[in-house]
Design a protein around this nucleic acid. Structure first.
Lengths: 243, 243
DNA sequence: GGTCGATTGAATCATTTTGATACAAACTTA
DNA sequence: TAAGTTTGTATCAAAATGATTCAATCGACC
């Protein structure tokens, strides 16, 4: 199918969606000691947005989020959690979508279903950066990672959604021991610590961090790493399997 | 207006609401050392439900929750917080509402707007028990308080909503120092402690609880209470005004 | 009026957790 | 083989928490 056919199909699918309800995903990744967020770019309008979509009438909101996440990253079985629902009357305008449609030859009338008011259920996902293939949707041209400290201006209220996702992640980090989802299967203590430091945005004392993590007894040593670096090689850890 | 007229007005207001979106409120109160939840009772079907409603197209979800809370309790300026959105496809059936309407002479067709799928945004409220006047809505006949340990079977997924509200409240209790909203303006340390014990569902050591609360320096002693009881009278506290 | 029982407010001490520093071990480079 | 790094762990001080004790203050009762 051509892009235009895709868009036509999408626009005609309006009645299959639950009205007024959308889903937005804040997809976090960790790469080169930086916390990243996956954003979509609309080349035509040079706008940025969170990956999002709508809820089919025969699927749950959680399923919709899982589906959207899969479509934008190619991965399933991801740590995904709802964190807030954004229900303001005026969450911003849909000019970007209108312009994008227009650039493909679709002129939306003001009462078109896509231009109505939506409340958005926000989910955040924690993914293994290395396993993700950012994939744009029918509105966008590029999907790419952006450092959490350099998020551009986003459409609608998406900047606020990112902020809320980050503050929720911070709050949950200790409570739920959720950070490991951002690393690959095996990792060093140093990598884990810099992940925590990045999310919490503060330095932690190495010795105490190590003591705390080990005291939880959820880590398992795999092997000594022969890093080739000029120092004592670190242990490699992975999460204990909770059979 | 007669009840039937009220219902007619409500049913005709369908187009004024945001489709597919509802709001449910878990209203917590504290009375006689017990945590209470405000429930509505449908006399005709002997069913119970959480106070809830729909979001007008020109109001935000938060405003809708505030409005619903006010309508059911007569109080404003209440601690109210969104905690989760329930977005399953099948959250249960609407038989109770259908029967209630029917008992008032309104037979709803299966495609009636009230019988469609809704996602529900859950809010919990913490109110001063003594200031609340439970007020039924047009579906219900009685509004009343129920001990958290004796919640009857509720319609739809409302039991699950109560559970989630309670677990969120527990999680937030220390983090946000939010419990005071459940007490009257002045209270004794003993009352505050039994509130914490009730919410957390565990005993706390009196001396240590007092030490912790005082160390936070958010409490202000008002006076000695001449309780009339046969023991040393306790201090009365209130929250420091954070000018 | 004096004693008793009850509860409050605070002190005390032991235990645990956390913060900060120190040091030996293991590796590469030169 | 010495120097320079980072890692893993030990150590000690400080803070937070758990558990117990005790004096103070009231009404009830004799």
């Amino acid at each position: 199918m051509t892009p235009s056919q895709n868009i036509k199909t999408f626009l005609e699918a309006g009645p299959e969606y639950l009205p007024s309800v959308s889903v937005d995903c804040v997809i976090f990744g960790f790469h080169e000691r930086q916390l990243k967020v996956l954003l979509l770019e609309f080349k035509h309008t040079k706008a940025f947005a969170l990956p999002g979509g709508f809820v089919f009438k025969e699927e749950s909101a959680d399923e919709a989020a899982t589906r959207i996440l899969w479509e934008r990253t190619g991965v399933k079985d991801i740590y995904l959690e709802q964190f807030h629902t954004f229900g303001e009357q005026n969450r911003g305008n849909w000019d970007v979508h209108k312009a994008t449609m227009s650039s493909h030859g679709f002129e939306l009338e003001t009462n078109h279903w896509l231009l109505q008011r939506f409340i958005s259920i926000g989910y955040y996902a924690l993914v293994d950066f290395s396993k993700v293939i950012p994939t744009p949707d029918i509105f966008s041209d590029i999907g790419g990672w952006h450092d959490i400290h350099q998020i551009p201006t986003l459409i609608l209220d998406h900047n606020r959604i990112v902020e809320k996702a980050l503050s929720t992640l911070r709050l949950m980090l200790d409570y739920k021991l959720v950070g490991f989802n951002l690393l690959s299967e095996t990792f060093t203590m140093n990598e884990l610590q810099s992940l925590y430091e990045t999310i919490l945005d503060k330095k932690l004392l190495r010795a105490n961090f190590q003591r705390k993590m080990l005291s939880m007894e959820i880590l398992e040593r795999v092997e000594k790493k022969f890093s080739g670096k000029a120092h004592k090689p670190p242990y490699i850890y992975r999460i204990k399997k909770t059979t």
